[in-house]
Each structure stands twice: as structure tokens, then as C-alpha cells.
Computed example of a mutant assay.
Amino acid sequence: MQTKTLAAALVAAMTLSMAGASLAQSPTRAAGSDTAASKPAGERASAHGMRGHRGPGNPVDALARFDTDNDGRISRTEAQAGQDAMQARRDAKRAERGTRGDAARAEAPRSEGARSAEARGERAKAGPGGPRGHAGRGFDLVANFDAIDTNRDGYLTRSELRTWHTAKAAERRAEGERRFDTMFREADLNGDGKLSRVEVTEKMPRLADRFAWLDENRDGFLSREELQAGRPQR
């Protein structure tokens, strides 16, 4: 009984000490908040840094940099020049990464798997999915210029780009749903509308280690809803 009383007293003392420290620091925080609030927009520090200096955060407004003559629209020539510049930057970064990778491989001992891949003439993959092409990275204004330019005036405006981007996003979601349905049906070997651990191990081995995590209702199966909950929303 005496031990329990001492433990309770110790916990109470620690709680009071922490509360006092918090009260002592709160004026400082308030003063800091007032200072931040008094700064002009663009100078306020946020949890992600100085957002005011990072430029637009959505893909449509990010294309404003293509409008080099600042007339509020993008011509075909500006679209071509902008994409050429982006491609040049990507090529330069890829070359830089390749140079760093070559240096690292020269310094580090090569594994048997790497030597075998080189002997077969296989190229190293860039990331889990291998090298990625331009498709899917964003807007291809040159290839889709006429489709985006709905009023056929030879220029792309913000509203036209937004409309096209929204339509393409819907198409990508629909295509993703079709692929998901196909994969689910192929994995559902007995056609009962849910996936057992055996089915997942055989048809979706990458999910096997996370089976228990994904099985939220703990019934020993993965439903469509449980799998879809973990899919990225685009």
C-alpha cells in the first residue's frame, strides 16, 4: 500500500512540474505567433518552409512559367520551348545521377547478382518499377495542344488547361479502377468475392507480408473495400 501511495505521489508531482513548465513557456509561444502573424504574406514560415517562394502548388498553375511573354496564355512555340527546357533539365539530372552511380559502383564491391546482370547485358532499373518514360509525368502540351485548345485560337489558357486536366484525371481514375477489377478477379481463384491468404500469396505476393495489416475486420480475407482503402487517390 505504501509503495502504491508513493508512486501516485510521484506521478502527481511530475504532472504538476510539466504543467508549470508549459505555462511558463506559453507567453513565449504567443509572442512568436504574433511575430509570425505580423510578417507579410510570403515571408511567414510554415511547417513546410517558406511556401511563398516555392511557386504554384498545382500542375495547371505551375505551367505559368511557360508563358514567357506574360500575356496570360501559352502559344504553341512557348509550349515547345518550355517542354524542351524541362526535358533538358531531366536529361542533365539523369546524367548526373548516372555519374554518381558509376562512381559509387566503382568504389563499392559488386555483388554476384550485379556481376551476373552485367554479364547478361541487362541495364539497371531506376527505382522499383524501372525507368519511367515521359508519359504520366504531367502535361504534354505539344502532343495535346489541339485537344486542349478548345476555342481553336492557337493559345492555351488557364481555364482550357484546367478543363483538360480534370478530364484526364477522371480518365486515369477510371482506368485504374478497371485495372484493379481485373487484378482482383484474377486473384479471386474461387470466385467468392474476397481474397484468402493463399490467393494473395499466389496472385499478389507483394501484399502477402501486409495481409494482416490490410485485413481490418480480421476475418482472414481481403475484401475489395479493404484493398481499395490502401490505393492512392489520383
Rank of each mutant, 00 (worst) to 15 (best):
R97V: 08
T99K: 10
R206Q: 07
K194M: 07
P128F: 15
A126V: 04
A143L: 07
A95N: 07
V200F: 01
Y155L: 05
A143H: 06
A126M: 11
E122T: 00
K168G: 01
R89A: 15
G127W: 14
F184L: 02
A170F: 03
A106C: 10
D181G: 02
E112W: 00
R89Q: 15
G193I: 13
G191A: 04
A104T: 09
A167D: 07
G191N: 06
E107R: 04
A143W: 02
D181E: 14
D181V: 11
G121Y: 15
F145G: 09
I148P: 00
R115Y: 05
R89V: 12
R137K: 14
D91C: 04
A174K: 13
A106T: 09
T166S: 10
A95Q: 07
G176I: 05
A79G: 08
A169T: 12
D84T: 14
D84K: 15
R73N: 03
R197S: 05
R110H: 10
R73P: 03
R179N: 08
G191D: 06
T150C: 03
A117F: 03
L189E: 07
I74A: 02
A169Q: 13
E96M: 10
A92M: 11
R158V: 06
L156A: 06
K194T: 05
E186K: 08
G130T: 08
P131F: 15
F145R: 08
K168N: 04
A126Y: 12
T68V: 09
W164G: 01
A79D: 02
M204N: 01
T201G: 04
Q83G: 11
E78M: 06
A95T: 11
G136Q: 13
E186D: 11
T157G: 05
R90P: 00
A119F: 05
